[in-house]
Structure formats: structure tokens, C-alpha cells
Design a protein around this nucleic acid. Structure first.
Lengths: 114, 114
DNA sequence: CACAATTCCTACTTTTTGGTAACTATGCCA
DNA sequence: TGGCATAGTTACCAAAAAGTAGGAATTGTG
């Protein structure tokens, strides 16, 4: 019984959703994934996601960095330059995200309720 | 430019996350998917997810039903019996969710921050 | 000297989400 | 008569998430 519970609370979906199921994480990962250079600066990401506030973008990036999905490289220049890219772990997540995207493209029309 | 924006806001990740990225949806879908009979009653799901309140489970199921991912069958008995199962659209989403699960099993250890 | 550029951070407020507990309806069973 | 069971709903409250607006830091440029 304790086993079942432990297993349940260790459920990978829970973990994934609780960590990356927020409003912006997957979007940021996808932006990094689809960028030509695989590297984006803070303001470049922000321009790609205009409706994400600076605060939320900063928070999201910090979370992704702490989760080791995104690498953050700071260049000690003025004005500051900070570059973000996917780590190997981050890259390994992309097929799963792309599976969601593919599903969305194919099936979302069946889902829309109006 | 308007095209880019429209495309951005129509982004499948956004749609998927905004609809199923909540705390319980994917978990409910997975419970239905992995049940022996492919059919579960309200309280059976609730017993599988003890930390989801009745209110949230009810709300989640309603959302999934309105999104046509879950079928709800009511039997006019006393006490009431209501059975939930995945629709074809719901089943079509499972491979993508399983991809997330597989990723979680393989890579979550690299993510944990402590 | 004022200002621009970049990447944040902080305080404050609003919105959304989730939890608790009580209530409903109905018929069966003791 | 008085619980019990099922599948919810509702009102109320707390917590979390997110938006807004402003500031800090630095240094080159006009």
C-alpha cells in the first residue's frame, strides 16, 4: 500500500507537469529548439514571445536552468549579454514535446469546444 | 507580421498546455488509459488519486469531457453510476503522453535540483 | 551630463487555481 | 426511522501564479 502510494507520487507525469506544465516553459524550450543558431539572448526570446512579461521570462529561464534543461552563458560585457541554449537533457526532451505538437496539429480541431 | 503573431498564438504547444497542462488532466487520462477495463467510475478514479479532491476531479473530468477526450456515460440508477472512458481522440493523445512519461523515467534524475 | 542598451529584480496588485466542508437526491438496508 | 452509498455542486477561503510598473547596474555615445 505504501508502495502503491510511493509509486503514485513518484509518477513521471506528475513530475513533468509540475515542473514544465506552466504557461511558458515548453514554449521557451521550443523557441530555443527551433532557433537557427540553437542560441538565443534574453531579448531575442522576449521578442519571440511578446506576451510573456520580462518577469515571467526571467523566472521561467531560471527554473529551466535550475532543472538543467537550459544552459545560461553570461558574457561580462556592458551592456550585458546572456545567451541561452538547450542542454543535452533539454534536447532529449524535445521529441516528447514535438509529439505533443504533432498531436495538437492533427487533433486540436476535434477538441475545440467554442 | 500579423501572420507571425497569429501563427504564434495558434501554436499547438500553447493550446495543449493551456488545456491539459493543469494539475490533474494528464493524470486522469493516464489512469483511464492504464485501467484494465478502459472504463472507470468516478470513485474508482478518486481512489486511484487520493490527493485530488472530489471538486477538482469533477472539474477535471468535465473539462476533459468538453474537450472530447473523455466519454461520460450516466446510468440512471440509485445510487448513481457514471462511467468514464477515453474517446478515440483521447486515445490518440496517449502516445504523446507516454513519450513524456518515458522521458521522465529516463531523465528526471538529471533534473532534480534538491 | 543625460541617455540608451541589456538583463534582470522588487514591490504591489490582480487573477487563477486549488482546498475544505457542507449540502443535494434517491432508494436500499437494517 | 435513520443511516449509507454515489456523484456530484456550492460557498467560502487560502495560496499560487502572473501582470504592472518602476528601479538597478554599467559604460559608451552625443
Amino acid at each position: 500500500m505504501a508502495d502503491i502510494k510511493a509509486q503514485y507520487f513518484a509518477c513521471p507525469i506528475r513530475q513533468v507537469v509540475s515542473r514544465f506544465g506552466d504557461k511558458w516553459s515548453m514554449l521557451v524550450l521550443y523557441m530555443l529548439h527551433t532557433s537557427d543558431t540553437d542560441i538565443l539572448r534574453f531579448n531575442e526570446i522576449h521578442r519571440l514571445m511578446t506576451d510573456c512579461s520580462q518577469k515571467m521570462l526571467s523566472q521561467t529561464l531560471k527554473n529551466l536552468e535550475q532543472s538543467h534543461l537550459v544552459h545560461r552563458e553570461v558574457y561580462p560585457e556592458v551592456p550585458p549579454r546572456v545567451e541561452y541554449s538547450l542542454t543535452d537533457t533539454g534536447k532529449s526532451l524535445m521529441p516528447a514535446i514535438e509529439a505533443l505538437i504533432t498531436w495538437g496539429k492533427e487533433h486540436f480541431k476535434e477538441v475545440v469546444t467554442d
